Amino acid sequence: MADNANERTGSLTGLSASEAQAFHKLFMLSFIIFTLIAVGAHFLVWSWRPWIPGPNGYAMVEDTLRLASALVSFKA
């Protein structure tokens, strides 16, 4: 037990070297999975509605807003 306490005093986190390595592996795996999910989500949103306008500019957005306002005024 005394050896274990001496081993932990060299670190700011209080983790031993093997515990720190295990935590690092888990952290990196979680980070990579999160990043892949985020990249996939961004790709799907880009495919659905591009952020940068195409050759017609934001005409599609303007048409959608015009349609939405027509529907709102129709219901009222």
Rank of each mutant, 00 (worst) to 15 (best):
R49P: 00
N4L: 14
L26I: 06
R66V: 08
Q21R: 06
K25A: 13
L36M: 15
I52Q: 08
V72M: 03
E62Q: 11
L67T: 10
A20E: 15
G10P: 00
L29C: 07
T64N: 03
I52S: 05
R49Q: 11
D3Q: 13
V45P: 03
I37Y: 05
A68F: 14
R49A: 12
W48G: 06
M1T: 05
S73P: 03
W48P: 00
E7K: 02
T64Q: 06
W51S: 07
L65T: 07
S47D: 07
L12I: 13
H24I: 13
H24S: 15
D63T: 10
K25M: 09
L26P: 01
G57Q: 05
L29G: 10
F23K: 07
E62I: 15
S11L: 00
H24Q: 14
F23N: 07
S69C: 02
F31V: 13
A76E: 06
F34C: 12
V61M: 07
F27C: 04
L71K: 15
T64L: 10
R8V: 12
A2I: 11
L44E: 02
N56E: 14
H24Y: 12
A20K: 10
P50Q: 03
Q21I: 00
S16M: 06
T35P: 03
N4I: 04
G57F: 04
R8L: 13
